[in-house]
Computed example of a mutant assay.
Amino acid sequence: MGPSALEAVRARRSWSKVTDVAPTHEELVTFVSAAGRVADHSSLAPWRLIELRGDDRERLGRAINKSNGDKGSSSKPLRAPLLIAVVASYRKSDKVPRWEQEAVASGIAHVLSLVLDEAGWGVIWRTGHYTRSKAVAKAHGLKKHEELLGWLYVGGKPTGRLGRRKPVDARHHLSRMPQD
């Protein structure tokens, strides 16, 4: 039996450097199916993911540079062999506001990062001002009702000494409702 959800969450960390191996498309489908179980008011599924490998990363690098007014190609997307673009794909709803739909898409990204980490992959969620640029949106084929929330950079976990994460003191973030 694998680690509990609590153990997996406690062990999670961001991996800014990863190796050149990545999960296969088939493995990724399994991980996304699991992540798709996040809480989703009215089951709108207001999200989609875009898998970027190989030359896709070069195309993204060109779009990033274009959004910055630069020529050539940014090397940022080459930091991992697999990038997963996280897209909020908003649905019309009288019950579920836009912010809540974005929270669902963010939840997908976070749960997917946990599942990938628990399966042995190094993951970091990267963003930048260019995530909302026209050039980057066009490169991803985003529709008018969609926004890019960033990318999960995924690769192998390098061997060697790991950094330590500070424990979270929940007492600073958890309170009770005020009494009258």
Score class of each variant (00 low, 15 high):
87 V>H: 09
149 L>N: 08
155 G>I: 05
51 E>G: 07
6 L>T: 15
6 L>D: 13
63 A>M: 02
63 A>Y: 00
75 S>D: 08
27 E>V: 04
147 E>L: 13
158 P>G: 11
118 E>G: 07
86 V>D: 05
51 E>F: 02
99 W>N: 10
50 I>L: 14
131 T>M: 15
104 V>N: 14
139 A>W: 07
106 S>M: 14
159 T>V: 15
128 G>T: 01
74 S>G: 04
107 G>H: 07
146 E>D: 04
31 F>P: 00
162 L>V: 02
136 V>Q: 01
44 L>P: 01
43 S>A: 14
177 M>L: 15
78 L>R: 09
32 V>A: 12
45 A>K: 07
23 P>H: 13
59 R>L: 15
1 M>H: 11
36 G>N: 07
169 D>V: 11
139 A>D: 13
58 E>M: 15
62 R>S: 11
156 G>T: 05
147 E>F: 01
86 V>N: 09
100 E>N: 14
74 S>R: 07
113 S>Y: 04
105 A>N: 13
142 L>T: 05
139 A>E: 11
102 E>N: 07
156 G>Q: 06
75 S>A: 14
100 E>L: 13
97 P>T: 09
101 Q>P: 04
155 G>Y: 06
17 K>T: 12
39 A>C: 07
155 G>N: 06
44 L>S: 02
113 S>T: 01
99 W>Q: 05
121 W>H: 00
9 V>F: 10
143 K>R: 15
154 V>K: 07
77 P>I: 02
100 E>F: 07
158 P>I: 02
106 S>Y: 00
13 R>A: 11
166 K>N: 06
42 S>Y: 10
179 Q>Y: 06
92 K>C: 02
154 V>N: 05
51 E>M: 13
74 S>M: 04
86 V>E: 05
157 K>L: 09
173 H>P: 01
76 K>M: 11
142 L>S: 03
41 H>K: 08
61 G>W: 10
17 K>Q: 12
97 P>H: 11
25 H>R: 14
7 E>P: 15
66 K>S: 12
167 P>G: 08
121 W>V: 00
123 V>M: 03
160 G>R: 12
162 L>N: 09
54 G>W: 10
172 H>D: 14
88 A>E: 09
43 S>Y: 10
